[in-house]
Each structure stands twice: as structure tokens, then as C-alpha cells.
Amino acid sequence: MSEIWRALGKAMVLIADFDPDLVEIIGLSLRVSLTAVFIATVIGLPVGAAVALFRFPGRPVLVVLINALMGLPPVVVGLIVYLLLSRAGPFGVFNLLYTPTAMIIAQAILIGPIVAALTRQTVEDLWQEYGEQLTSFGVGPGRAVRTLLWDGRFSLLTGVLAGFGRASAEVGAVMIVGGNIDHLTRVMTTSITLETSKGNLEIALALGIILLIIALGINASAYAIRDVAYRAES
């Protein structure tokens, strides 16, 4: 027990000192996950809205695909991206394996479906309410999508935050495609795995605490957004 307390104490010192290794790892984690969230959102919002509003060939396949991909285990996504980016794979020529870019790709694939599925649900619900009046206004398809996305902004933002939560917490995909290379592709979750196995509990704990704080922050913002939205719209 005392060992845990000692490790916790050292972890606090590392955090308080802004240990450069720690800062580098946290910085890369945030960069990778935030970029992945950005890409997932840019693709997921229009795809989700299109699936909600339009009937087109292949739509049922897309719906099943989005729902199935939502629950994909990160290691499987990692494996698939690994195969695609490896030397022998179709995108091997780009030399992306074991780079932050590969990690961003893997995480974007991981959370894109979450953003798309949530967007679809939100937009469908709003269309139930808005559909006739927007048709009456003479709103075209493009404008309808923009209107529904904007009016669903609070729900959508919570979905995006959930995506960021999943991205920053997962370890399997970034481990496989990033390789946990020091100063290059080492992020918080892969460091925790490595340092724990090496017995460096203080660094693992320090990172774990920061990861917890980030998770708490995300959930607090999601709650605050819901609260603001509720007061503004109820």
C-alpha cells in the first residue's frame, strides 16, 4: 500500500514540475485525438445527416455499416489500418506506418461512426419536428442539412465529445499503428501500458491521473452543454 502512496506522491511531483517527457506525451495525445475528432466530425456530420434525410441507393448498407463500426474493438481497427499502411499494403508507398498520421487515421476510423450515428439520430428526430415547416418555407436539401445540424448543435457537440473521450482513452489501435516509439508516437495510453509493465508506476500513475482529469473534463463539459441547452430550449 505504501508503495502506491509513494508512487502517487512522485506522480504529483512530475505533474507539478511539468516534466518535459510528460508534457511531450500529453501534447502528442491531444494532437492525435483532437485531429482525429476533427476529421471524424467533418466526415461524420454530413454522412449522418445525409443518411437521416435522403433515400439513396446503398443507404441501408451504410446504416448497417455505421452501426456495426460503432462498436468495433480498437485493436481490430488498428490491425486493419496496419495492414493497409504496411509496406505490402495498398497505401504502403506513403510510409505512414508508425507515424502520428497513422494514429490519427486509426482513431478517426474508430470515432467517425460514433459521430455519424449520433448525427443521424439527432437529425432524424429534428426532421420529425421541422420537416413540414421547412418544406413549407421552400428550403432545399443543402440548406435543410445546415439548418438541422445547427439546430441540433448541442446534441451533436455531446456526441463529438463522446468521440473524443473514446479516442483519447483507447490504446489498442494507436499501439498497433503507432508502435509506441519514444518521442515519436508515444501517447498517454501506450506509455501507461509500457511504464506499468516496466514497473515505473509513478510515470504511469501521473499519466493515468491526467487522463482521468481529461475524462472528467469532457464529461463535465458534456453535462454543462446539456444543461445550457435544456435551459435555453425547454
Binding site: Y130, Q133, W150, R153
Partner: peptide, 29 residues
Amino acid sequence: ASLHQAMVFQRPMTLRRSVGANLDYVLSL
């Protein structure tokens, strides 16, 4: 012809924006 008509429904649909922005929306349309 649709440009010369408007309709109001039993349950009013108001956009999730300010009162003023609800009017501005149709004018921009």
C-alpha cells in the same frame, strides 16, 4: 407559386435560435 404562400401549423415549429433569428432565417431564405 410556393414563393407567394406561407403556412402556420397547429403546433408551432420554432427554430432553436433567438426569436429575432427565427424571422431572419425566412428572410434569408
